[in-house]
Each structure stands twice: as C-alpha cells, then as structure tokens.
C-alpha cells in the first residue's frame, strides 16, 4: 500500500494491450467497411466491444485502487497534469476545424471569387461567374440548394443548456468539497441530464437540417465545416456525459472525499472544456 511519500507504480498492466487490440480491430474494421467489404462492420463491432471492455475494466481498477488509498498526493498530481495536457491536445484538435472554417470563409472562398486575381491565376478560367459569398457550397454548388442554420432557435437553447450544466457541475463540486454528498449527487444528476438534453436537441437540429433544410455534410464547404465542428463537439458532449454518469454512480456508491476526487475533477474539467468549445461554435458557426 502506498504511503504519503511513496509513489505507486503498478508492476504490470493488462488493459492497455487489450485496449490497443480493440482499437486496432475497430479501425481496421471501419476501414474495411469503407472499402466496401461486408465483414468490416462485424469486425468493428467486435473491436468496439473489446475497447469498451478495456475502458470498463481499466476504470474499475483505477477506482478500486483510488478507494483503497493507493493514489497518494504525488499520483494525484500526475493524473491532474495528464488530464490538463490531454485537454490541451483536444484544444488543438478543435483548432484545426476552427482554422479550416476561418481559412475558407475569410481567404480561400474570396480567392475563388477572384479576389486578388492577377496574371497566372486560373480561378476565373474555371468559374468566371462565381461570386464569393458566405455561406456557400462553392462554384460547383455541391450538394444542391440548402438553408443555413439560424442561431436563435435550438442553438440558443443548447447554449443555455450547456452553460447551466456548467453551473450545476460547479455546484456539485462545491458540495463535494464541503462534504455535502446530497448536493454532489443532485448537481451531477442535473449536469448529466442537461448534457443528454443537449444531445437530444442537437439530434433534432440535425434531423431538421437533413430532412427540411437540404443542409447535409455534403453541402459544400458550409455543410462540411458545420457538421464537422458541431459533430465532433456533439461526440465530445456524449463522451463527457458518459464520464459524468460514471462519476455520478461512483458518488452514489460513496466514492470520493473532499481531499481525494481526481475522477470528479477530471470529468468536470473535460465538461467545462466542451462547454467552452460550444461557445466558440455558437459565435463562429451559428451567429457570425
């Protein structure tokens, strides 16, 4: 067992290898599926099951170790730092898609429309009639006519949902720090509920876009950036909500103390990160 001074170093790890096999099988299956091989989807499901098994087993092990006091202060600091740098990598991942939106919207679509044309540029030869505008599906009008998503219907509601989930999450954290388990559980339940409500609203919005507005992933650069940004964000909301659900169940089982609750903190940081990304989306994708 760990003491205050000693750093816990596990002597072997079974789950990482299993998880790697799971992920590799999933991705190879997906690739085969994309290439039109029927067995790809079976492979994918099998790999995903293995991956989920790994997540369950590994996190259960971590939780058990944490509850038995093996994670001293030093280990906690490692986990916190690890989580922060992981979130930083996620920031960079979203930055790519925000960057793509900025670049196309402010630079390359204008160039397509002839801005800055001079000798040696071929734009006007290919699409002499194209006039730059945003939103656009390009000179080829890829994907046909579409309507753009307004900001003040469901998206505004979604903004309010996520912002209030950030508040309930912090309220739960205060409860945990003060030793009020009841407040912790209520706050977490509210956060998870608001999170899933967000996902439902987002799904409704997508459904509307596809069925009524003609707006799809294939609607040129507008559709591409819209669905990639909101889609990856929605995926992260799902992951965050699942993590928070696990933390909720652990709280109900009596896990965590005011001093030792890295899992809660990590989940909360992740949730706030997802929240901030949404604010970026709301401004740059929906409002502007």
């Amino acid at each position: 067992m760990s003491t205050d001074k000693a750093y816990y170093i596990p002597s072997k790890a079974v789950w990482p290898f299993i998880g790697t096999i799971g992920l590799m099988t999933t991705l190879a299956g997906f690739a085969n599926y994309l290439n039109g091989f029927g067995y790809g989807s079976t492979m994918m499901v099998f790999g995903l099951m293995l991956f989920v098994l790994m997540l369950t087993g590994w996190f259960a092990l971590q939780a058990a170790e944490s509850e038995s006091g093996m994670h001293n202060h030093g280990v906690e600091i490692s986990y916190r730092m690890g989580m922060m740098w992981f979130i930083f990598s996620e920031v960079m991942f979203f930055a790519v898609f925000f960057g793509a939106l900025w670049y196309t919207r402010n630079l390359s679509v204008d160039w397509l429309g002839g801005f800055g044309d001079g000798p040696g540029r071929s734009t006007n030869m290919l699409w002499p009639d194209f006039e730059a505008h945003w939103p656009t599906n390009g000179p080829g009008e890829i994907g046909g006519e579409f309507e753009t998503m307004g900001a003040f219907g469901l998206p505004l509601l979604n903004t309010l949902l996520l912002l209030s989930s950030g508040v309930t999450c912090t309220w739960a954290h205060h409860g945990l720090l003060a030793g009020h388990r009841d407040q912790l559980i209520k706050g977490l339940a509210a956060t998870v509920g608001l999170g899933f409500l967000f996902v439902i609203c987002q799904a409704t919005e997508y459904h509307e876009a596809y069925t009524e507005m003609g707006l799809t992933l294939g609607s040129g650069i507008y559709g591409s950036t819209f669905f990639m940004l909101t889609g990856f964000h929605g995926f992260h909301v799902c992951v965050g909500a699942i993590i928070l659900t696990v933390v909720l169940f652990r709280s109900m089982k009596g896990h965590f103390t005011p001093e030792n609750h890295f899992a809660f903190e990590g989940a909360a940081w992740y949730w706030h990160f997802v929240d901030v990304v949404w604010l970026g989306l709301f401004i740059f994708v929906y409002i502007l």
């Binding site: 994309l34 790519v96 793509a100 670049y103 196309t104 390359s108 679509v109 160039w111 397509l112 290919l126 656009t136 599906n137 390009g138 000179p139 080829g140 890829i142 994907g143 799809t216 992933l217 294939g218 040129g220 650069i221 507008y222 559709g223 591409s224 950036t225 669905f227 990639m228």
Partner: peptide, 23 residues
Amino acid sequence: MLLTDRFFETSFFDAAGGGDPVL
C-alpha cells in the same frame, strides 16, 4: 478531413464545393 472528403462527401479540399486543396 481527407477521410470525410473521400467517403462522406465533404468539400474541405475541393474547390468546386468552396474548399481549397491548399488548406
């Protein structure tokens, strides 16, 4: 984005759809 351009009809790097290979 390469994956979605090839398999999911996006236009990130296709000028016809308003994208840009230089991106």
